[in-house]
């Protein structure tokens, strides 16, 4: 069974419902779609985040996301994976990332979605710059993200 993989890095806002409908259009073999959407918070390392600017490495980013999705499709019986990540300037409350994973059964979809997010956080070349009342600064990587990705190493699941 082949898994339909779709990756998009875009400035425009995405429509969660539209992505869900696109995944299940013209097929009835899907039993579960797990979607994760990430939003811009108004607090992070510093309070009062006014805006966020996302930089990426065009070309490598799409390729890295496609590889992560392909890896998930190899580990679980998935039917479709859609990853949408926004770049450019975003403000608190804005949706920033969407990962939708379809499978015949829920557990594979939950695990696949979680796996993709964990590796997106540690392997896909995006960088956030926060714009706060105290000034602008580049967000530093969290060690908890690295730990989350490590739990998928062989033998842990």
């Amino acid at each position: 069974m082949s898994c339909q993989i779709q990756i998009s890095v875009q400035e425009a806002e995405f429509d969660l419902g539209a992505v869900n409908r696109a995944i299940s259009a013209d097929r009835t073999d899907i039993g579960a779609i797990v979607t994760f959407s990430g939003l811009v918070r108004d607090f992070n390392e510093k309070p009062d985040v006014l805006a966020l600017t996302l930089e990426h490495y065009p070309g490598m980013t799409e390729q890295a996301l496609a590889e992560i999705a392909a890896e998930a499709a190899e580990r679980w019986p998935l039917q479709a994976i859609h990853v949408v990540h926004r770049v450019g300037r975003l403000t608190p409350g804005d949706p920033i990332v969407l990962v939708a994973v379809a499978s015949a059964h829920r557990q594979a979809a939950f695990d696949g979605c979680s796996f993709i997010m964990d590796f997106l956080k540690t392997r896909a070349p995006f960088w956030k710059k926060e714009n706060t009342r105290q000034g602008d600064y580049w967000v530093s990587a969290r060690s908890s993200d690295a730990t989350a990705a490590e739990r998928w190493q062989e033998g842990e699941i």
Partner: peptide
């Protein structure tokens, strides 16, 4: 070739 800080997307 590219050099960059740890990634912070998502």
């Amino acid at each position: 070739v590219a050099f960059f800080p740890p990634v912070t997307g998502g």
